[in-house]
Design a protein around this nucleic acid. Structure first.
Lengths: 230, 230
DNA sequence: AACCTGTAGATTGTTGACAATCAGCAAAGA
DNA sequence: TCTTTGCTGATTGTCAACAATCTACAGGTT
């Protein structure tokens, strides 16, 4: 898919800092709600505050960090509203990607999708949810890449990233493994068939466990609300 | 829709600069491809380079400006690929917005949509394409606002902005006025009816003149390519 | 003439210092 | 006791200077 680039890419310090911070956040090193103080981060990375500021702005645009004037940044906190937004948006983007991928499909790409499916099946066999989430991500990334739509790709990445943050934090989502695999097989089959409308439809209906997570988060939210009253 | 806020919003200088720059770009004051030098802009706005830098980063994330390392910023140039991306993405987002708006519809919001339609019809009567584009924008913005989906709203705004840049620059798009109005009436009717699937379908099929603009840009592109060869 | 090479000016990347603003607390008044 | 008001430390917003990098051009080499 991505050819190994021999060209060294000059990456500015602020982007490198953003990469590191993103990684830390997505790994759960900084829990949602954690304040991100510019001076601390600057000291931690041995960079100036301005550079850190730029990195934080980047992550803000990616939706991993929230910013309020004169009050600084914090790792994005999760509400059920946000989860709902992410899942509806993801569905729409995946549906579009599936539709477009049909027009760009080649034997080589079919192969890539198939190996993605195999990785997913292996993860299901191992009953490893982490591995499953990774394989799921790779497969969908592949579909989006095939669509040859840069903006869609960028947007999908951002949405996916935020969803990972949610899954990470809520530690939820124990879906039906075999159903997940079956759904993905169906989706890939639809794309390979070249039937754009079918593929779009399958992608739209596919994400049944998204609703599950949203509902779960709603309940957690209600629960913590009740606790807050006491 | 938006209540007049009496609370004065403290807006940092970099955001104010971004607002002004955005306005200038969308007004066509800076043509696509124009380089945006930090020192010049800093002098023009009487601000420091760092502040301008931040504003440029903001606009980069909005897709109005492109940035390359150590070579600075320029107003985003247009290719037919970009136009295709914007229109496909817009269709998907509008379709989602229409679907979601069905669940959030209230008599008051129906009223807002109706007055939006009237503004569109007036614009068509006046045969003013500028007015039509504005009314179109307001109406769609209203639909997206009704959907109560912050991320969708933000994303739609960005896509719409870029499309405006394209229309601005190519100075194209002389669509069938009465058809446009009819299509919008159909869309609003579908949303008001509360039939989410129908609304989504209508929104998806609605944007027929998008394909037209993409095709037009492709032709312009081929033409300039041929000229470049000579 | 064509190609490499190194230098100069311009422009961006980065930094540390200064100014503006905020949150929390303590003291004064009701 | 409760509210208000003015400090104080902490934190972000802004700036101007310094370092790194790029583009273009001049000069030399084959």
């Amino acid at each position: 898919m991505t050819q190994p680039s021999l060209t060294i890419t000059p990456r500015s310090l602020d982007m490198q800092a953003a990469d590191l911070l993103r990684e830390q956040i997505l790994k759960g090193r900084f829990a949602p709600g954690t304040r991100l103080l510019e001076v601390d981060l600057a000291a931690q990375f041995s960079l100036s505050r301005g550079t850190i500021r730029s990195a934080l702005q980047q992550l803000t645009h990616e939706g991993l960090v929230v910013q309020s004037p004169y009050r600084g940044c914090a790792v994005c906190s999760l509400s059920s509203q946000d989860a709902w937004e992410l899942y509806t948006l993801r569905q729409a983007l995946e549906s579009l990607a599936a539709r477009l991928a049909c027009d760009q499909i080649t034997p080589q790409r079919v192969q890539a999708l198939q190996s993605g499916l195999e990785a997913l099946a292996r993860a299901a066999e191992h009953q490893s949810w982490q591995e499953l989430a990774d394989a799921d991500f790779v497969l969908h990334q592949e579909i989006v890449a095939i669509s040859a739509h840069r903006r869609l790709q960028a947007q999908y990445r951002i949405v996916e990233q935020q969803i990972r943050l949610y899954i990470m934090a809520s530690n939820a989502l124990r879906p039906n493994l075999t159903q997940i695999v079956a759904e993905h097989q169906q989706l890939v089959a639809a794309i390979v068939s070249g039937n754009a409308e079918l593929a779009a439809q399958v992608a739209k209906d596919h994400n049944s466990d998204g609703a599950m997570l949203v509902e779960q988060l709603r309940q957690i939210e209600r629960h913590t609300e009740k606790q807050a009253e006491n």
